[in-house]
């Protein structure tokens, strides 16, 4: 196996707020190989976006802290630039500026608000090009036009403002911006959530195509298993800041193990079953300010038992490349119960 483009080891991120400390990410580890797409699935507040922002060095300040863990990006350990000391902030930011937009491109959830309303889209794409390449303004503009054409926007609209585009087109522009410097990794944070279903498909189609064209690894953050099925090679399910199950697309879709993963699938409408009602997951996600010392999913789990309360479960490999964190899977795959 080659060197992974992104390797996250034992990442713990806390937010310090006025009311307490929120444990947003708890001991998360995963890696992404070049050209590979990992889907990060979980409900709102599970810590998906926090992971993305940590990689970018953009944790909300003040308050966001990396407590422990190591992130290696393209062979370079970047967590050492995450020091929170005020004195080093500028120096560290300088390192991160070389990563952002250049090695890692990011696509945000809401294309409506992700573009600056007072600059033309062309300017905004050209900006990222000029930041990371020593090119003249006209050269940057030329490349920006090319990027626009690549994502399917006529270059003639270079001088249009964001409000003159539809949502789907805006997202294409955001994608163009994220890919403008041919990053090795593209983080897409719910790139289709805010779009109409038909537009979603188009955008996913575009991303799939571009991934190949640019040979970019991708971290696809979503709560939509359909999107994962559509575009990902691997999938990690995250719950209350912890990865509860990770494996290839086949592992997760064909043999989901963790009760949470299964519950997610149960909540999906299925064309070939006669179930009248979708099954919802009862209860609310555990409060990140007050996580239990045992399995965070315990309260909502339909398979809870006394053993669950004994301690925090750890990821165990149930088959090669398929890991689950649940007391019911103690290192080997269980048959259907």
């Amino acid at each position: 196996m080659s060197e992974p483009i992104l390797k996250i080891e034992n990442l713990v991120v806390h937010y310090e707020t006025r009311t307490g400390v929120a444990e947003a990410v708890n001991d998360v580890s995963f890696e992404i190989q070049p050209g590979e797409t990992l889907g990060l699935v979980g409900e709102t507040g599970a810590g998906k976006t926090t992971i993305a922002l940590t990689i970018m060095g953009l944790l909300p300040q003040p308050g966001g802290h990396v407590i422990q863990g190591k992130i290696t990006l393209d062979g370079e350990e970047i967590t050492r630039y995450l020091s929170n000391s005020r004195r080093e902030t500028n120096k560290n930011d300088k390192h991160f500026r070389k990563i952002r937009g250049n090695k890692v491109g990011m696509i945000f959830q809401d294309p409506m608000s992700a573009l600056n309303p007072v600059y033309t889209v062309g300017e905004q794409i050209a900006e990222v090009i000029r930041l990371h390449n020593r090119v003249s303004r006209s050269e940057a503009e030329k490349r920006a036009v090319e990027m626009m054409e690549t994502v399917g926007i006529p270059g003639a609209r270079f001088n249009n403002y964001p409000h003159e585009f539809s949502g789907g087109m805006k997202q294409r522009i955001v994608i163009a911006m994220a890919l403008a410097c041919s990053p090795k990794l593209l983080i897409a944070d719910e790139p289709t959530t805010a779009l109409d279903v038909t537009i979603q498909a188009q955008v996913l189609e575009l991303m799939r195509g571009l991934r190949k064209e640019f040979n970019t690894a991708m971290l696809m953050i979503t709560h939509d298993l359909g999107v994962v099925a559509d575009i990902c090679d691997k999938c990690a399910v995250i719950y209350a800041g912890q990865i509860v199950e990770i494996g290839t697309l086949e592992h997760i879709f064909n043999s989901p193990c963790h009760p949470y993963t299964r519950a997610l699938f149960d909540a999906l409408p299925s064309l070939d079953s006669d179930v009248e009602r979708l099954k919802s997951i009862e209860g609310l996600m555990a409060d990140p300010m007050d996580l239990p010392t045992y399995c965070s999913f315990y309260d909502r789990c339909d398979r809870k038992c006394d053993a669950c309360k004994a301690g925090d479960p750890v990821l165990k490999e149930v088959e090669p490349g398929h890991f689950v964190s649940c007391v019911h899977y103690d290192g080997k795959k269980e048959g259907e119960a």
Binding site: L58, G101, M106, D110, S113, V128
Partner: peptide, 15 residues
């Protein structure tokens, strides 16, 4: 607090 500020930061622009 707007998204486009985050976008701009994500591009690698100086704060």
């Amino acid at each position: 607090r707007q998204d486009y500020i985050r976008t701009a930061r994500a591009k690698g622009q100086r704060k």
